[in-house]
């Protein structure tokens, strides 16, 4: 009887081991492996927003310059996805993200690309629509942003009014962004600047911001007054983690040339293209 009981106990322990413990161990290992893989494959895109009158092709020359200056093999080059948001909020995508590319480039442009504060406000809403869609599609949680001209205003409005907490912008670089529109006097604050200042507490505290100004003359880049770019200081300084204001000069420092200015290309390379998580 005693032997029978001991035998039964051994059989019971064996069944438990084979039926529960072993599969449980294997199940956990597989699920941890999957989670690790997902973590390793998480992408951190750099998202570009062009200024008024510009299309989704606005940054092509910049991408070519970055590829030339950076890794040469095709496998290492950054893949590019272009998105144009229609006035109804519909997305048209072209290009695709390559698997294994951890820092792809995404351009978000708008079908309605007229100049002026009312359009910029609408564009911030379209940007939010596009970001929601892209996040759902590619599952990223961190990204960096580049905005040329009014594109920088669209980003700032988006960060202040629309950005969800689940999506963290790490670094924002604005190129020739007129935070006080065409106003060259510090004393006159446009409605846009007043609004940006009113909501500046909502900017993410961990964000790093670089504002680049171009100067063709002593007072501006030919389109945007230097004082208007420098007004960005009032929006970001003391609100975000770091705020840097850079002024580039020389041959390619006019407003529309800023995206291919060699100094700007180098800045993007050193500030945005090194993986930091």
């Amino acid at each position: 009887m005693k032997w029978l009981k001991a035998g039964l106990a051994v059989v019971f322990a064996g069944v438990l081991m084979l039926g529960l413990w072993l599969p449980a161990g294997r199940w956990m290992q597989t699920s941890v492996q999957h989670r690790r893989l997902a973590e390793r494959n998480a992408i951190m895109p750099i998202i570009f927003v062009p200024g008024s009158s510009a299309t989704q092709d606005r940054f092509d020359a910049l991408f070519a310059a970055l590829t030339q200056a950076g890794p040469t093999t095709r496998a290492q080059a950054h893949s590019v996805l272009k998105v144009t948001v229609s006035a109804a909020g519909k997305l048209a995508l072209s290009g695709r993200l390559r698997a294994g590319d951890r820092q792809p480039f995404i351009v978000i442009a708008f079908a309605d690309n007229r100049d002026g504060y009312p359009t910029i406000q609408k564009q911030a809403g379209w940007l939010a629509t596009a970001m929601r869609d892209l996040q759902k599609r590619y599952g990223f949680t961190h990204y960096s942003g580049v905005g040329h001209s009014n594109g920088g205003l669209v980003w700032t409005l988006y960060l202040e009014r629309k950005a969800p907490a689940s999506l963290a912008m790490q670094h924002l670089m604005t190129l020739g962004t007129p935070f006080n529109l065409a106003e060259s006097s510090r004393q006159n604050r446009t409605a846009l600047l007043v609004d940006l200042l009113a909501d500046r507490q909502k900017l993410p505290k961990t964000l790093i911001v670089d504002s680049v100004a171009g100067t063709q003359t002593m007072t501006g880049d030919g389109t945007v007054p230097l004082a208007s770019v420098e007004a960005g200081r009032y929006v970001f300084q003391g609100q975000v983690q770091h705020f840097t204001q850079t002024t580039v000069t020389g041959a390619d420092a006019s407003h529309s040339d800023l995206t291919t200015n060699p100094q700007v290309v180098r800045l993007i390379q050193t500030q945005l293209l090194t993986e930091r998580r």
Binding site: L20, W21, A24, G25, M28, Q29, S31, V32
Partner: peptide
């Protein structure tokens, strides 16, 4: 560190939560 279902038996749960 690894989450396990609430109904995981205690000893097994401790072992699984550290990935075995």
């Amino acid at each position: 560190v690894f989450p396990v279902p609430a109904t995981t038996p205690p000893l097994l749960g401790a072992w699984l939560a550290t990935n075995g």
